[in-house]
Design a protein around this nucleic acid. Structure first.
Length: 495
DNA sequence: GCATGATCATGC
DNA sequence: GCATGATCATGC
């Protein structure tokens, strides 16, 4: 047996050896180090190839980490560049598949997720569309462990996923259910095939995952020299309510402040035995039924009322975060904030719009990978104000993500829309110069409808099929909207 | 008064 | 210049 080029019991040794791949491809390094010519042409297996030919161990899909003696799990994941400048994650980081039957019998500390993924060796490589795996270049390599505050949130996320399985709703799991640790679908076809313990309904196969923006924060902090590997033994013990072994990484560098992000929760103590959701919502409690002006006055601030970011500032000020920064928890969990102004009958003054879709794009999408479903599976923070005479008072603040049954409703609107675009059935009639279309309206569906969303009538996207009635090949930009009635009944008025 | 068509404003 | 969030205007 050949001697390993690193100490398999030492995470730092593994990391140091891994870093020899920085700015190089696997093929380059293996040729330089070992005069080994790889002839592998396969795609989609960079992680496995790296394990086998660089770290010289056989792939396993066991529940233990890839380097069991050091407790390190290897993850290769693609990054892309923003205008050749900034690195950002191309996709989620996907962990182990959730075995619904087994996971519910465990506690977090012995869960499949925590057993395997306590300490990660992250290897970010630059995605190139036409390159084969072993020629891809690694750009960022580091050990990573979850900061204690994040681990607390992740543990709560795990409990949420477990409780949904216990409720017999594994088939209704959604990434919007949780903050950081998601349950994303995994597998070539998305048909439900996996058994779940408390329902006869088959569920889609899902794996634990981190959202791309969570990875972006890791990338940005790493580029700034932060490592988040300071001694967290005591904090970890508090979270896990269990003794854990002495921290092998206790000696690492200090965390620096990140100027572009501002966390709501800075220390474990700030949770006060609440979830992140409870912490955030409760910060609004004392301002309920007050006007925005009153709230700002109490907070000792007086921003420009006409400014477009007036309500954004209000939310940030209440949460006690830097108004010039993004809210760290919201960024990493990809939470969308929607400020809604209700009329006196609780009906939102406006429907809620989303970004315009491209007609040519939507016809080639499948629902499960569609941009619209992606949006709907996010978590939202709704901040409801209500008009009393002509003053707006804060009424309710709640986190929300769309229930499974309503996602199925939204799917009908999307399918209908795609079909109309494919067939070129856009314009129904033109009366007094105003066009009406066949797109699904409010009476078609209780959840969502389709309406224009453009700078003006000239602001168009190309049609894949010319419109049958008018023959035009471009049409005003459209988008999906959430019906105001839906927002009132299912988001504002529900519990 | 509401549904639908149309457009504005800001920030990157 | 465009994407995105927000809002206005018209006709039934």
């Amino acid at each position: 047996m050949k001697e390993l080029p690193y100490d398999k019991t030492d995470a730092y040794s593994i990391e140091g050896y891994a870093k020899k791949l920085l700015d190089k491809s696997l093929r380059d390094v293996l040729k330089d180090l070992y005069d080994l010519e790889l002839k592998i042409k396969a795609k989609g297996s960079l992680g496995q190839t790296t394990e086998k030919y660089y770290f010289l161990y056989e792939n396993n899909s066991k529940s233990e980490p890839d380097f069991p003696e050091a407790g390190v799990e290897l993850k290769t994941t693609p990054v892309i560049t923003d205008n050749k400048v900034q690195l950002k994650a191309k996709e989620r980081l996907v962990f182990n598949i959730i075995n619904y039957e087994q996971e519910v019998r465990r506690e977090f500390i012995d869960s499949s997720f925590w057993t395997k993924n306590k300490l990660l060796l992250l290897m970010f490589y630059l995605h190139e569309k036409d390159e084969i795996d072993i020629d891809l270049v690694f750009k960022l390599i580091r050990l990573f462990r979850f900061p204690a505050v994040d681990l607390k949130i992740i543990k709560d996320d795990w409990e949420k996923i477990k409780s949904k399985i216990i409720a017999g709703k594994a088939h209704e799991l959604s990434e919007g259910d949780t903050f950081y640790l998601g349950a994303c679908t995994k597998g070539a076809n998305n048909t439900p095939t996996r058994k779940q313990p408390f329902s006869n309904e088959l569920a889609k196969q899902r794996a634990y995952s981190l959202k791309p923006k969570y990875l972006n924060v890791i990338i940005q902090k790493t580029l700034k020299g932060e490592h988040d590997l300071i001694d967290q033994t005591d904090d970890y013990r508090r979270i896990l309510e269990n003794n854990i072994v002495a921290d092998p990484l206790a000696k690492y560098s200090k965390v620096k402040k990140d100027g572009s992000l501002s966390p709501v929760v800075k220390h474990l103590d700030d949770f006060e035995n609440q979830t992140i959701e409870q912490v955030i919502v409760s910060k609004f409690d004392r301002y309920l039924n007050k006007t925005a002006e009153q709230i700002f006055e109490e907070l000792g601030k007086d921003p420009n009322k006409k400014a477009k970011n007036y309500y954004d500032r209000l939310t940030k000020t209440i949460l006690g975060v830097n108004v010039e920064s993004d809210i760290e928890e919201f960024e990493k969990a990809e939470i969308t904030i929607k400020t809604i102004r209700l009329k006196e009958n609780d009906l939102p003054k406006e429907d809620i719009s989303f970004p315009a879709f491209k007609f040519e794009g939507i016809i080639n999408e499948h629902w499960d990978e569609s941009a619209f479903k992606e949006i709907l599976e996010h978590k939202f923070l709704f901040v409801f104000f209500q008009f009393i005479d002509d003053r707006l008072v804060l009424r309710k603040v709640k986190f929300w993500n769309m229930p499974y049954k309503d996602i199925l409703e939204a799917e009908k609107v999307w399918i209908k829309t795609r079909e109309l675009i494919r067939n070129g059935e856009i314009v129904k009639e033109i009366k007094k110069g105003r066009r009406s279309t066949y797109f699904p309206n409010k009476s078609y569906n209780s959840v969502a409808h389709v309406r224009p969303h453009a700078r003006n009538i000239e602001d168009t996207y190309p049609l894949p099929t010319p419109d049958k009635l008018t023959g035009v090949t471009n049409y005003t930009k459209y988008c999906f909207w959430l019906n105001s009635q839906y927002v009132r009944e299912e988001i504002y008025r529900k519990f």
